[in-house]
Computed example of a mutant assay.
Amino acid sequence: MITKLGQVNIYVPDQAKALAFWQEKMGFRLVKEETFHGMRWYELAADEQNETSIVIHDKAKVAEMSPDVHLGTPSLMFVTKDIEAFRSDLQAKGVFVGDVMEFPTGKVCNFADDQENYFAVMEVR
């Protein structure tokens, strides 16, 4: 039986750039850095509980080692308690943030990392 989603893998062309984005602009913390068979990856989490973490992989290395792996960016929906404050904070850091839209489930906007991968965030109060 599955009890939770543990990690989400994100495959990027530039790991250093992705690591800087998630730490400096999104406020994620580095949980661990691993190297195995010439591959390096970084695990980051948004909070101390580490309920779900993202793992940043080198897209080219993964493609070389596992050619059947889908290397597209996953469609991730993050959660915030104040979407307007979240949006303002990212804009002040130079991050592209889309307009806030109202859905039956709440307010949502998207944002892009420094490698043009798009993600979304939903306000949950």
Rank of each mutant, 00 (worst) to 15 (best):
I10E: 01
M122L: 07
D113Q: 05
A85S: 11
V79D: 02
D99N: 13
E123M: 06
H37N: 15
M1G: 10
V97E: 13
E43K: 13
V108K: 14
E34P: 00
R40G: 11
G72R: 10
I10D: 02
V124M: 12
W41S: 10
S88D: 11
K59I: 01
H57I: 00
K4Q: 15
P67E: 04
A85L: 04
A63G: 15
K4F: 12
L19I: 11
I10C: 05
D47K: 11
E33Q: 13
V100L: 06
R29K: 14
T52M: 09
Q15T: 15
M39T: 06
A92I: 00
L30P: 07
G72D: 08
E43T: 15
A46V: 02
A92F: 08
Y42I: 06
L19C: 05
Q49L: 08
S66V: 00
V12L: 03
M65L: 06
A16H: 12
V8S: 13
Y118I: 14
Q49G: 08
Y42S: 11
K32A: 14
D89P: 04
R40N: 14
M77Y: 05
H70T: 01
K61I: 00
L19W: 06
F96M: 01
K59Y: 01
E64V: 00
V31N: 03
E43V: 14
N50T: 12
D113G: 04
D114H: 14
D58C: 03
H57P: 01
N110W: 07
K4T: 12
Q23G: 03
G98W: 03
T52N: 06
N9M: 10
P74D: 00
K17E: 08
A85F: 04
T52F: 00
G94D: 07
S66Q: 09
C109V: 02
F21K: 04
L71C: 09
L5A: 09
E102M: 09
W41K: 03
L76C: 14
V100E: 02
R29Q: 10
P13I: 03
E33R: 10
